[in-house]
Write a protein that binds this DNA or RNA. Structure first.
Length: 475
RNA sequence: GCCCCCAUCGUCUAGCGGUCCAGGACGACUGGUUUUCAGCCAGUAAAUCAGGGGUUCGAAUCCCCUUGGGGGUACCA
């Protein structure tokens, strides 16, 4: 049996890794690993006009961040190097010329202006816009002359009759009438291949066994099949994944949704949570579990189980999952949790991991669903409140009494339980309800009406600091 | 316009001819624990399985049509 080899072929035309590409990458990765195969990254940078500087590097780093490690790629090389199409240019042209010789492709000298006009006319007549084959009929002596001093492209010579069909692992048989398939450009006038040529040549040369990609490629697949046939190559297995959608059901786009993986990282989403959430798109664990790791997914994954209905990428459940993962991390590895917090671009007040931070984490982490939220809740542990959510002036007396009673506790007895007992006494003595009294104290200590548990927080702050904060108000 | 794909609670989904007057999770809501929030526990609402025809003793599950949604239709990927 052939070794399973999958790949994703991102174009460095965006800010970062697109969430849709991350999804495709996940499925390709999991499928490859499930079959002890290889997962490959190939950069398809054939559109020079849309190239974004630094994009490739950021795409690769996001892939790594997500834990989708690849076996071969542009930065790590591999047996089929190079993995960047712009570095494989001469290849494509040779293959295209070979097709011309066999009659499966032809040179085309039509100008973009003529093509536009042609299409407009076709649309006006209610015809499908397609290349009209003018250059297919140019005599070969004439072609040889024109190649020398005219710009040209090379087009695929699609048969005018017949049907091209293929079996999609997820969708079954899909067929297209050849007469509706356009004579696709294979080599552009700048000498670069189009996606269609590049993807077929490279997938073949790199021995890709399974082409798993987004649904938007279904209608180009017959062109690819025709190419494989023209070259006389074996077909890979095709699987077209559902497209992730915006809440309004349109194709996931940056207009309507944050689509860059880097955005989720900056928000304080953990990679494990994003991956887990993505894996819930179109696939479900056989045990109906919602939370599971990448390696657990690999264990239970079956390509055929992917549902073809396009899911909406709705961030609610991602948030819930992230909360779970944050709690796990904070509990199991508070040190790493702290490090992560401190590497956030929105990094705030949390100092390096120490005894105090170790005590703060279990109090704060269950109350956040993204790392970004951590600082707002925990900052009072490390700095006195700058402002108070409630006007405390009329409560000076109560606060002062609270300070006095806490003053009586020995430093060695400074524990949340003891603090609580003492404060209950004050609470009873004042005319205030418990909730009102503790709300006042809470605001005094934390600045906020909502905070981690008060007594425990006071314990962590220590006697001196606690009393100092009370006196700040009562004085 | 033409081609192709898709259709179960608001969302993600289970279901692959009888065990489903459709199950789970998120979200929402109610109650409990409680000094706030979070958590935890208990519970409620939420899908005439898009609609209509078949096939079958029997259909959410198979077939057809309609409708709806999506994708493609470039010298972009």
């Amino acid at each position: 049996m052939k070794t399973v080899r999958t790949r994703i072929a991102p174009s460095p035309t965006g800010e970062n890794l697109h969430i849709g590409n991350a999804y495709t990458a996940l499925i390709n990765f999991v499928f490859a690993k499930k079959n002890n195969g290889q997962f490959i990254i190939r950069i398809e940078d054939t559109d020079r006009s849309r190239l974004v500087k630094g994009s490739e590097e950021r795409i690769l780093s996001s892939l790594k961040w997500l834990g989708l490690t690849y076996d071969e790629g542009p930065d790590i090389g591999g047996p089929y190097s190079p993995y960047r199409q712009s570095e494989r240019l001469s290849l494509y042209k040779n293959y295209a010329q070979n097709l011309v010789e066999k009659g499966n492709a032809y040179y085309c000298f039509c100008t973009p202006q003529r093509l536009t006009k042609m299409r407009e006319k076709q649309i006006a007549q209610g015809l499908p816009p397609m290349y009209d084959g003018t250059c297919k009929r140019v005599k070969s002596e004439e072609v040889r002359a024109k190649i020398k001093n005219e710009k040209y492209v090379i087009r695929l010579n699609v048969p005018e009759e017949g049907i091209t069909e293929f079996t999609d692992v997820l969708r079954g048989k899909i067929s297209f009438e050849n007469k509706l398939i356009d004579d696709q450009v294979l080599i552009k006038s700048d000498g670069f291949p189009t996606y269609h040529l590049g993807v077929v040549v490279d997938d073949h040369l790199m021995k890709i066994t399974h082409v798993i990609r987004g649904e938007e490629w279904i209608s180009s697949t017959p062109k690819h099949i025709l190419l494989y046939q023209a070259f006389g190559w074996d077909l890979p297995v095709f699987a077209h994944l559902p497209l992730l959608r915006n809440p309004d059901k349109s194709k996931l786009s940056k207009r309507k949704n944050p689509v860059w993986v880097s955005w989720y990282k900056e928000q304080g989403i953990l990679p494990e949570a994003l991956i887990n959430y993505l894996s819930l798109m179109g696939w479900s664990d056989p045990n109906e579990r919602d939370k599971f790791s990448l390696s657990e997914m690999v264990k239970h994954f079956k390509l055929e189980d992917i549902k073809t209905t396009a899911p909406i990428f709705d961030r609610e459940k991602l948030k819930w999952l992230n909360k779970k993962y944050i709690q796990d991390l904070a509990t199991l590895d508070p040190k790493r949790f702290t490090t992560l917090l401190r590497t956030m671009s929105s990094y705030g007040t949390t100092p390096e991991f120490d005894e105090k931070v170790r005590k703060v984490i279990p109090l704060v982490s269950p109350r956040i669903s993204t790392l970004k939220e951590y600082d707002a809740i925990s900052s009072f542990f490390h700095a006195r409140p700058q402002k108070y959510e409630v006007d405390l002036e009329s409560y000076q007396d109560v606060i002062s009494k609270s300070a006095d009673i806490l003053e009586n506790i020995q430093i060695a007895q400074w524990k949340s339980d003891r603090i609580g007992e003492e404060l209950q006494k004050v609470a009873k003595a004042t005319g205030l309800t418990n909730s009102e009294y503790f709300m006042i104290l809470r605001v005094t200590i934390t600045g906020k009406k909502v905070s981690p548990p008060l007594n425990e927080s006071m314990e962590i702050l220590g006697k001196n600091e606690t009393i100092a904060r009370l006196q700040t108000i009562s004085a």
